[in-house]
């Protein structure tokens, strides 16, 4: 039977596997024939470890830096991600996608962009942050407020340092609890907000993190007067197909894999199953 199946993964090759923290690794993947993944920031792929299963993973590399490969920052937390953590460069994994609606970068051009990722939420936002930095002149101010629980849980530390060093990016990093290695800011992510004053009407905010974080970050963003239609969130859901059929990712009437994973706050405001 030659009929093509939407569930058939392509076989990609791990060209680099880099430990980031005790829980997260960064995987660089090449598709067959060096073909481009062709993704937008904020989209995700379904990643297969044949024999173990398949899981949705957001793409962390920016399309502007594709170089014939793409990157996934993956926490080991389930069967598939634990299997991935056991794999070395040179191994083959399955990839389907990219799927979903990412961040609408065209609606952000000309505006100030405020990023507020928490923990692993930096992974999907990094794709957009680097795209924005690579097209820096198309945007107003670029602000990154990043929070993690502990210093050793901070992701992409080299890149954070680069962003902090740049004159045209305002990057502030905090940890909930410090340790002897940490001389930076201590406190939850919302304690970074007083460091930046913004022009709410001209600001687009982008946030991603654990469900508990959204509540407090949203209060800050809304409290600053940023319109609900200019606040973007990327939501995590269980997914088995990625193409709007299996039902697992449904948030009330919306399929997170199709309408999302990026939503505006206006879209999900009052939607009980969203946050």
């Amino acid at each position: 039977m030659t009929t093509s199946s939407i569930y058939l993964p392509e076989m990609g090759r791990l060209v680099q596997v880099e430990s980031m923290t005790t829980l997260e690794k960064l995987f660089t993947i090449e598709l067959p024939g060096g073909q481009s993944l062709g993704h937008d920031p904020g989209q995700f792929v379904m990643v297969s470890v044949l024999g173990v299963g398949e899981a949705p993973i957001s793409i962390t590399s920016s399309p502007s830096r594709s170089n014939g490969s793409f990157e996934l920052c993956i926490r080991r937390v389930g069967d598939v991600t634990n299997a991935l953590h056991g794999m070395q460069a040179g191994a083959t994994i399955g990839v389907r996608g990219p799927f979903g609606h990412g961040f609408p970068i065209e609606k952000m051009r000309g505006k100030d962009v405020l990023f507020a990722p928490g923990g692993l939420g930096l992974a999907p936002l990094r794709s957009l942050i680097n795209q924005v930095i690579d097209e820096r002149s198309s945007f107003g101010r670029v602000i990154v407020l990043y929070g993690a629980k502990r210093p050793n849980e901070l992701l992409f530390r080299d890149e954070l340092d680069e962003w902090i060093a740049r004159d045209d990016v305002e990057c502030h990093v905090t940890v909930d609890r410090g340790d002897e290695t940490w001389d930076g800011h201590v406190g939850v992510i919302t304690t970074l907000f007083p460091y930046v004053s913004i022009n709410p009407r001209n600001t687009v905010a982008v946030t991603c993190g654990p469900p508990i974080m959204y509540r407090f970050v949203l209060m800050e963003l809304l409290g600053k007067g940023i319109p609900e239609t200019q606040i973007y969130l990327s939501l995590e859901r269980r997914m088995k197909c990625g193409v709007g059929k299996c039902g697992h990712c449904q948030i009330n009437d919306q399929y997170c894999c199709q309408e999302g994973p990026v939503f505006t706050y206006a879209q999900i405001k009052g939607v009980e199953e969203a946050l």
């Binding site: 039977m1 009929t3 569930y7 044949l50 024999g51 191994a91 083959t92």
Partner: peptide
């Protein structure tokens, strides 16, 4: 069945459409 696959260092996957 949606697919069959071989595992190991060079895994391969093939679709199965049973009709």
């Amino acid at each position: 069945r949606l697919a069959t696959f071989s595992m190991g260092s060079e895994p391969r996957v093939a679709p199965v459409v049973e009709a």
